[in-house]
């Protein structure tokens, strides 16, 4: 009698701590995802300034600039919650911006421009923050998913309504996956 009571109490305590742990992790995952959004928004706000700063000098790169503007518009039009689509569109924007940053190197007048340099540092900073917040999200997401899938938590997790979260992945055909072509002949 007493033994079975103790067993029930112990199991009850274990269930409670497991449930609370999972709730905490789920909230952390949601928070980490919002962090990515904050950084993406930052990037969207930055692009118009950047484009207008380099537009005059980079007359011959209209196509590249056009691509950046289009990718930005596409990324901003993604419906909230659609993570796969968002990851794909933002990936395209990252690729377009990377191309722009590479081209900038061949314009000495741009490299000497203090305003452009400031914006470029701001862009590098934002790109890194996007990368790190993505990394942090994936880390914490993996932690949450692993916790749900290990024994014996896996028996109860789905019963309590926990679902594994999607990692922030680049789609297989994302331009961000393409190898950077480096031309060393000059």
């Amino acid at each position: 009698m007493i033994v079975s009571l103790i067993v029930i109490v112990v199991i009850g305590i274990w269930l409670m701590s497991m449930y609370n742990g999972l709730i905490t992790l789920r909230n952390n995952v949601a928070n980490a995802l919002r962090q990515i959004d904050v950084q993406l928004k930052r990037r969207h706000d930055l692009i118009p300034n950047l484009v207008s700063a380099v537009k005059g000098e980079m007359k011959f790169e209209q196509e590249t600039l056009e691509k950046v503007v289009q990718a930005r518009a596409a990324a901003m039009s993604v419906k909230p919650g659609n993570m796969k689509d968002l990851a794909a569109k933002e990936g395209e924007l990252t690729a377009a911006l990377g191309r722009l940053m590479m081209l900038k190197e061949s314009y000495p007048s741009l490299k000497a421009n203090e305003e452009v340099n400031k914006l470029m540092e701001e862009l590098t900073h934002t790109e890194n923050q996007i990368g790190f917040s993505r990394q942090f999200y994936n880390d914490i997401c993996t932690k949450f998913n692993t916790k749900q899938q290990v024994f014996p938590t896996n028996i109860f997790a789905s019963m309590l309504g926990f679902k594994p979260e999607e990692l922030w992945e680049l789609p297989a055909d994302s331009p961000e996956r393409e190898n950077v072509k480096v031309d060393l002949s000059f």
Binding site: A32, H125, N128, F132, F136
Partner: peptide, 12 residues
Amino acid sequence: INIVEEIAIAAG
């Protein structure tokens, strides 16, 4: 300053 911000994000 920017790098400190970036690494803080990475470390959560």
